[in-house]
């Protein structure tokens, strides 16, 4: 049996196909055309796994665009899916911190189940978007920001209140001649402190797992470790946690239904683009 998890995030769309393990995964940009792209990423993943869609037992969609996945059997929020995905990879997790393109969230987990969560609201500071904006302004590649910042000798203070103000601050620091690595280290600290303050409302407990695109930035991860006071864990592919969790939840639902003899609740399963008008 094969199970699919689709995580339609604000910046990236992630699809995984699993049986006992991940068979195939594709990550593509979400963009404004995400209604079309979810389906394209799905097709690409099926191609990688060499499977026809008919052989997929269950599809769970998650992420902010989850309602725009017409081939999904069920929609489940990213909170539940991330918790499931992280717990499957790190069974000892108590706190998951997910920093995505446009939101950051903290999830408190006990025995693999969500016991509480917090999310940022309508603010790019403290998310991947913050890094994207600054990378663009500085002409630095997003992927190299983390490593660069580790060379910092004297981290500068950057405001974490507003992305636009922070961008201005960065430009003026560079103009003053501050080394770029010190500015980047300051930026990472600004994100980490903002995320830490939010997640600490849940009382952060060990083990802490960091996921989402920003988890690929070693500078932010190190800054977060400074705040929590101990090492945090990072998944091998931090973007896929939600999709893995979605696939696993689909598997759980299917197996539970089969075990109890209940019919499996299915969606429309139309492997096509979503539109506003259907």
């Amino acid at each position: 049996m094969y199970f699919v998890g689709v995580d339609l995030g604000s910046t990236m769309t992630k699809v995984v196909i699993m049986d006992e393990a991940v068979l195939a995964c594709v990550i593509g940009p979400t963009g404004a055309e995400h209604r079309r792209l979810a389906y394209k990423v799905m097709e690409e993943t099926l191609r990688q796994a060499n499977l026809p869609f008919d052989e997929i037992s269950y599809v769970v969609a998650t992420g902010y665009g989850r309602i725009n996945v017409p081939f999904a059997d069920k929609q489940i929020t990213e909170i539940t899916c991330h918790a499931k995905g992280v717990s499957s990879l790190f069974p000892t997790v108590r706190t998951a911190i997910d920093i995505g393109g446009q939101d950051a969230k903290g999830i408190k987990i006990a025995n693999g189940r969500v016991v509480g969560f917090v999310m940022n609201d309508k603010c790019a500071a403290g998310t991947g978007r913050f890094l994207e904006v600054i990378a663009n302004d500085l002409g630095v590649r997003l992927e190299e920001m983390g490593e660069l910042s580790l060379n910092s000798k004297s981290r500068v203070g950057i405001s974490s209140t507003c992305t636009v103000f922070a961008a201005q601050e960065v430009v003026s620091r560079i103009a003053e001649g501050t080394p770029i690595e010190d500015v980047l280290a300051g930026l990472h600290e600004a994100i980490a402190s903002r995320v830490y303050r939010m997640v600490e409302r849940l009382k952060i407990e060990r083990d802490v797992v960091v996921t989402g695109g920003v988890a690929k930035n070693i500078g932010v991860v190190k800054a977060l470790e400074e705040h929590v006071g101990f090492p945090v864990l990072v998944t091998e592919e931090p973007l896929l946690t939600g999709a893995i969790g979605a696939a696993l939840l689909g598997k759980e639902l299917t197996l539970n239904a089969l075990e109890s003899g209940r019919p499996i609740e299915r969606g429309a399963r139309r492997l096509e683009e979503a539109t506003f008008f259907k």
Binding site: Y64, I76, T77, E78, I79, V114, V115, F117, D121, K122
Partner: peptide
């Protein structure tokens, strides 16, 4: 931000 509220409420129901 209504979409955010609904998502959080749905996550609570799932929990």
């Amino acid at each position: 931000f209504e979409a955010d509220w609904k998502m959080k409420l749905n996550a609570l129901f799932e929990t």
